[in-house]
Design a protein around this nucleic acid. Sequence first.
DNA 1: CTGAAAGCGCTAACAC
DNA 2: GTGTTAGCGCTTTCAG
Lengths: 339, 339
Amino acid sequence: MVTIYDVAKRAGVSPATVSRVFSGHANVAQARADAVHEAARELDFVPNRNARRLRTNSSEIIAMMVPDIENPFFTLMTRAVEDVAREAGFSVMLCNTNEDPVREHEYMRVAVSEPVAGVILVPSPGTNLDLALERSVPVVCADRHALGYEVDTVVADNKDSSASATRLLYDAGYERIACVTGPDGVETADMRMAGWALAVQEHTGAPPDPCLGIRAAYTVEDGERAVRLLMDLPQPPDAIFAANNRLGAAALRVLNERGLLPPTVGVVSFGGLPLILLAPLGVLITHLPARELGHQAARMLLERINGLAAPARSVTLPVVVGGEGSGIDMIYKAQGSAE
Amino acid sequence: MVTIYDVAKRAGVSPATVSRVFSGHANVAQARADAVHEAARELDFVPNRNARRLRTNSSEIIAMMVPDIENPFFTLMTRAVEDVAREAGFSVMLCNTNEDPVREHEYMRVAVSEPVAGVILVPSPGTNLDLALERSVPVVCADRHALGYEVDTVVADNKDSSASATRLLYDAGYERIACVTGPDGVETADMRMAGWALAVQEHTGAPPDPCLGIRAAYTVEDGERAVRLLMDLPQPPDAIFAANNRLGAAALRVLNERGLLPPTVGVVSFGGLPLILLAPLGVLITHLPARELGHQAARMLLERINGLAAPARSVTLPVVVGGEGSGIDMIYKAQGSAE
DNA sequence: CTGAAAGCGCTAACAC
DNA sequence: GTGTTAGCGCTTTCAG
């Protein structure tokens, strides 16, 4: 393996000079810097990052922990994180927490012992950040808050936009609107259900019928189970507010089985369905700002990595509802692969 | 930061013993090992991986380089890699090459200087593996071969199954079948087009009309452009063989615009469309073994990381076509999120 | 089975 | 500006 010593010898300078040249921020005479670069090229020198990291106790790796890497929403967010990370010279280590605090914590252990420069996390209900915080590894939460911790967080405006989306169903003439949402304690699930409940209360003057608000894992399979339950009710709903893209797909699949596709039964999918046409259907989609969530989270993390010491910040990204180019759209007008 | 020295002092042993306990494979008396573990727990000791890596010159990171992390096909593959990597104690660094050799090479540089334990790569036409090979970082290629290199590779049986899929369109009564495939030089694009051409030749006794075989980037946008070209032909096709999921979606979108959805114009999408119902349509889907590709690639890489020195292996995963549970299925029967 | 000691390749004081 | 030097925390001979 070729080291700075080899390069130094060949370039006729000291190892320190080589180090200075490669670590950037240091004054080296132009002539010597050139000599170093030339020697390095000739020797095909690649700096050893582990040695550097051991010395500086830092890395250029960001850990990105998401509940489900196969969900296009998180994929898009990850992609956005990767884009800004790369530009700043960081790599992204991807971790699939599976919405499981144990697994998440396991990953946190390796992240901390790495140590990574920072972590971007979509927290689960049982998230534990102690390990990272003790060792002052910067953490920013995306999409949801971490319960009991004060860290930078960026989320979407879940409650208000859920209420707006639900109102759209009322506007379209539906009267008995159900809600399928995610697991208890998952912030997005809770907030979106709260938004739905709010809109129902506004419209009917009473809290929603408890049978109409139902929970499922954020998966198509479990969503189908839940939607079947809903449609088997003595008084089934005439519209469904689905709190994420998986549940939206589940609703459509079940309704399809029963010949009740929209507009027979109304559907709003909170979060984009994969880019594909469903032209005959009138499904309402709200576009979550997945990309912006990722960008913002990455930017905030980079600030922290660079030493920013301000108190925890919390930003809520707006989800404009209704109108062209806004948050809610007919599916066949949907742009972008999956928000 | 707490080090093995702190732990050693507290446990009343030497640093070497602590190291032996944590690096596993070493004989330490049970009593001392217990003492070490206890001390480590009390001190909340986490081994510093950079120090270890510097010493051993190895890491537990696998670089996974894919052309488009937002494509569910690659996402699923990545997920499969992550699953087997995790089990073996490895983390996955995700790299989005964007089908761009320059960007790919850039990532290869950081992978090599990391150094990562190995890399799993979906190569582009211009892939250059010299950097990794010189430094004997194991590489396995997935989904495509790397031109000009002898490395472990796992691919799907693209040509034969494309031919079979095309035959299915003939069987369904279509007569003038077009093909939209990916960029020239991208192996999957070339092989799938070759399979289509083979089936056409078989059926018509002549090579396909060159106008009917068209290329596009593997994106929905560019696919739409290509399909429009096809449908604007003086003699437009009555069926389309789309060589990947993006192009399949593109075909459906364009046909939808023109009121020509299947079965008016036949469509086969080579590679699963995202899980969503399209019941009224009769789209043929072939399911690519994305998960198996990932598993297999990861397993082969792990073998190399563990020192296997056999000559390069090449495995082709079968894509059984036709029949229940096989490669081709009606979309509304599709299982799995996106193969 | 265990400890002492020598680095892995690099950076960062510190002198010059 | 540049060279010298002392480690970063860990693994690994080598003795005992």
